[in-house]
Design a protein around this nucleic acid. Structure first.
Lengths: 221, 221
DNA sequence: TAATTGAGTGAATCATAGTTCACTCCTTGT
DNA sequence: ACAAGGAGTGAACTATGATTCACTCAATTA
């Protein structure tokens, strides 16, 4: 005779799955990918190691899910910010600022998920994540370019370079950590300005654009 | 009674040490850091696994030596190119082009040594490598800035962002591989131009600068 | 309440990769 | 030619971390 899970059990299990994901995320945010190990993650989530395998077939699947969740959040934040902007150039600008400031907020996590290596399966997913972000940038760049805000150029290459510049300039191991919120905002502005100039934006209004764009609110799960 | 190594033996052993390093380098160039394993490296070098430990106390030391050698080569190439340039702006440009084109030549290797994670000891060395390159860029940027080629700005942040842009734009997993030498040259030019513009170089001569700078010759060991 | 299902457990197992070391045999010195 | 030293070997060992599975027990059903 089979056995029906009550709503209570379903809820508890869903919560537990989230707890595992959150534990994995926290681990990654603190110690990078190498800290995402089954036993420590299980401990953080308050369960036994074996239990993890009731929720995810393998560690790879767990990490894949983590990448998926984070990617979804980041992308939607970027899209939201861009679509709220009044024009193509400020949409691009909002995209960059959003990506940059969110990345800065969770430096270690973003770095781990975007740059640290993993097994081929996860690498492929990470690849998708990067590609989605690049595609987002590329679309904004193409639109702004069509509007004549900067000269014709290879939008794909430019999008990739922007991602690199922002990551390296803000979250990479080279970047010095920002002391306070003001310094943080300043760092984001610097990098955004650098990015826009790289595309060939000369309009002095650009500086205004960058400064106006506020930091988006936190919305990590 | 102690035993004197003849020149022959000394030479053979030096050659073998190089062979091990070369094997490690090739492995990294093909399969990234995770391919740098003692047994495969030993096999490539034509020796037994245990022999590696006669030349390097640990795998970490081997990788550290590898990073050191490559860093030395890259830095000296950048310096050579820059010091052969006629002025501060073209020196900066030469630096970027050299870094970019060499990185493009050995994409996987550079990416592995510059971006992939490793144990803390190696990470620290990699850090040094990045810092050296950043410092090289930063010095060129500062000089060109002092000469008024572009506006005042945070040179450190700019240097980091440039490295990121070049790496991501050319060697990162996002960059499409260049089909032929012409496409390669084109990619380097695109990224270099992007970099200079990011700094605020508006001088139309800049394009000339980029185009003029030839790809440096290969000189991998 | 008794029987049954399946979530949870965690010690045991497996897999991978770095490291050691007893041994072989070439090289050197007499 | 012979003895000694040390380079080279590679099977065995160690460490780490993922995965399994026989078992326990709370939740469900009859």
């Amino acid at each position: 005779m089979s056995y029906r899970r009550t709503d209570n059990v379903i809820r508890r299990m869903a919560a537990r799955q989230n707890a595992i994901l959150k534990a994995a995320r926290d681990a990654a945010a603190e110690g990078g990918m190498e800290a995402v190990q089954v036993m420590p993650v299980a401990e953080r989530a308050g369960i036994a190691a074996g239990t993890v395998y009731r929720y995810f077939p393998s560690k790879t699947d767990l990490v894949a899910a983590l990448v998926g969740v984070v990617a979804e959040q980041e992308l939607s934040a970027m899209r939201r910010a861009a679509s709220a902007a009044p024009g193509p150039l400020s949409a691009l600008c909002a995209s960059i600022v959003t990506f940059a400031s969110r990345a800065l907020r969770a430096r270690r996590l973003v770095f781990a998920l975007l740059a640290e290596p993993a097994d081929p399966q996860v690498a492929a997913l990470r690849q998708d994540f990067r590609k989605s972000i690049a595609a987002e940038f590329e679309a904004r760049i193409a639109t702004a370019m069509a509007y004549g805000h900067f000269p014709e150029q290879d939008t794909g290459r430019a999008a990739a370079a922007l991602i690199g510049a922002v990551l390296e300039g803000l979250v990479g191991p080279l970047a010095r950590p920002a002391a306070d919120a003001a310094t943080e905002r300043d760092a984001v502005q610097t990098v955004t300005l650098l990015s826009l100039r790289a595309l060939g934006v000369n309009d002095p209004r650009a500086r205004g654009l960058v400064v106006q764009t506020a930091l988006p609110p936190r919305d990590h799960a």
